[in-house]
Amino acid sequence: MSTVEAWGAAGQKYEIHEETLEYFRILEGRNDRPLIELTPPEAREAGLTIAKLFGGDVEFDGQIKEFNVPSPAGEGSIPVSVYRTTKCPPTAPVVVYFHGGGFVVGSRATVDSMCRSIARDTPCTVVSVEYRLAPENKLPASLDDAVCATRWVKMNKALIGASNTSAMGTAGDSVGGHIATTVCHEVPGMDFQVLVYPMVDLENIYPSVEEFATSPGVNKKILEWLENLALTSPAQLADPRVSPMLRKQFSGLPPALILLAELDPLRDSGYAYRDRMSEAGVQTKLVLIKGAPHAFIRMPGHFKQLCASSYASISEFIRKYGSNDMKAPAED
Rank of each mutant, 00 (worst) to 15 (best):
P265R: 04
A308M: 05
D112K: 04
E211G: 04
V58R: 03
T182H: 08
E59R: 13
P140L: 09
S315D: 08
A134I: 03
G47A: 10
G8S: 06
T122P: 00
D121P: 01
S117C: 03
T110K: 00
M190F: 07
L263I: 11
T3Q: 13
G11C: 12
S163R: 00
N204D: 10
T20W: 09
A134S: 05
H294F: 08
D332I: 00
F103L: 11
R108D: 00
S71K: 02
N228S: 14
P135C: 00
V183E: 14
A9K: 09
D173Y: 05
E18H: 05
R151L: 06
M168D: 14
L253D: 11
A10P: 00
V196P: 00
Y131P: 01
V105W: 01
M277Y: 04
S174D: 15
F192L: 05
L35F: 10
G106D: 08
G322M: 11
N228Q: 14
D264N: 13
R132M: 01
W225F: 14
V196M: 15
L143E: 10
A6P: 12
K304T: 13
S243K: 09
G106H: 06
S310Y: 09
K65H: 12
S251T: 15
M299R: 13
A43T: 05
V96H: 04
K221D: 15
R84P: 03
Y271V: 14
S251G: 15
G169I: 14
H294N: 07
G301F: 04
A167W: 10
S309H: 12
D32E: 09
E203G: 02
N137G: 01
V95E: 13
E28F: 03
N219S: 12
I258A: 10
D332Y: 01
C115A: 05
T91Y: 02
K221G: 12
P198V: 06
T39M: 08
V200C: 11
T182P: 03
T49M: 06
Q12F: 11
A238V: 12
Y321I: 01
E22H: 09
F192E: 10
K327W: 09
A238L: 14
P90Y: 01
S323Y: 10
K154T: 10
